[in-house]
Simulated assay, not measured.
Amino acid sequence: MDAQHRRVDTDMPTPLRYTAFSTTPTGGNPAGVVLDATHLTDPDMLAIAADLGYSETAFLTAPPDGLGEPGRAYTVRYFSPRAEVPFCGHATVATAIALADRVGPGEFVFATPAGTVPVTVTRTPGDGTTTTTTATLTSVTPHVTPIPAPDVEEALAALRWPATDLDPALPPRIAFAGARHLVLAAATRGRLADLSYDFDRLETFMRQRDLTTVQLVWRESADVFHVRNPFPVGGVVEDPATGAAAAAFGAYARELGIVPDTATLTLHQGADMGRPGVLTVELRAGDARVRVGGAGTRIPSPPLPQ
């Protein structure tokens, strides 16, 4: 039995479970967090991620020398149930909030396969004894590139979308901010809501072009967007809230001039899956990097089997 499907050994660490981009455990995107993966092999990490079944699980080990102060700097790797991915925004947010629960809010820095990613965690008092914990990551330097027309046609065929359902004001592009995403814009909210794609065909297309997700977008207003993210390469039909794709989309929006150089965008994701989440994308003039933030909270552990 391969590592992807084998049962996780009982002496393996149990991942913490956090959701990102929501204040409630039932919203946003759940992620696993293993705070000490020092003794885990790659097959171990893949098996833990597959056993948990979330779109990504983050695994922490010691940071490179000089990265940051102890307890606030780590090396982080991300595994989906099927494979390692270079960067995951929601698992980064979840990890930072998990650490803040132990050492307090403030600044963290992660060495990821995509590059160095700083994260700021803040806490805001709410009503009574409640607080909201928010994490904001700063992406690696992004870039946006054209995509050949035949590739767009194949992507649309896999999605079962006619070309006439695309928004001509938001042309297809490949956007990167730690991972590669194909950005496709729907002309209507109804088109975005109706997602029933050919899983195997889209997975094959994405693997051939080294894509992590497809960022499907509908523009509600100048700075409010609704997004969905098919993720077949990770073994997941759809990601509920995708920080890496949000960062890539911020770079896309700025590159195409559809938003100002300094802007704050609101992305709604997960409502069509019953896990609504909100991602805030911040662009700053003179800084190519994109900041993506949102609330997060711990997901209670399930009861042990009797």
Rank of each mutant, 00 (worst) to 15 (best):
A58T: 13
M206Y: 02
F21N: 10
F231E: 10
E255M: 04
L283V: 06
V236P: 07
V34M: 03
P168M: 09
G32R: 02
L283I: 03
A193P: 03
E84C: 06
R209K: 11
D200R: 15
D287W: 09
R77C: 01
H5D: 11
T92Y: 07
V8L: 03
H268R: 12
A98I: 04
L216M: 13
A251D: 04
V233L: 06
R219V: 11
A179M: 07
G27S: 04
A222K: 12
R191N: 12
V259M: 04
T264H: 12
A187L: 14
T212G: 08
D287F: 09
G234R: 08
V278G: 10
R189T: 14
G294Y: 03
L256K: 04
L16V: 07
P146K: 01
D272S: 11
A295F: 03
E255N: 08
C88H: 07
G32I: 00
E153S: 14
T19G: 10
I174S: 10
P162I: 00
P125A: 14
E107K: 13
R7A: 10
D9T: 14
M45I: 06
R298Y: 02
T112C: 07
L304K: 15
H90W: 03
P305R: 09
T280C: 11
D151H: 09
A50G: 13
T61P: 09
F205H: 15
T23G: 15
A179E: 04
I258S: 15
T92L: 12
E107Q: 15
H226A: 15
F231A: 13
D261E: 14
D261A: 11
A271P: 12
G257L: 07
A31G: 05
H181E: 07
G257Q: 09
A96Q: 08
F79D: 07
A73G: 06
A253F: 00
T280Y: 09
P30R: 06
R77T: 13
F87D: 08
H90K: 06
V76Y: 06
E238Q: 00
D9Y: 06
P260V: 01
A245F: 01
F59Y: 03
S55A: 13
D127T: 14
E282N: 13
T122N: 14
V8W: 05
P240R: 08
F108V: 05
E238N: 06
T134D: 06
S55F: 10
P105W: 10
G274T: 08
L52H: 01
T112D: 07
R82T: 14
V93P: 14
A295D: 13
V121S: 13
T95C: 07
D9V: 09
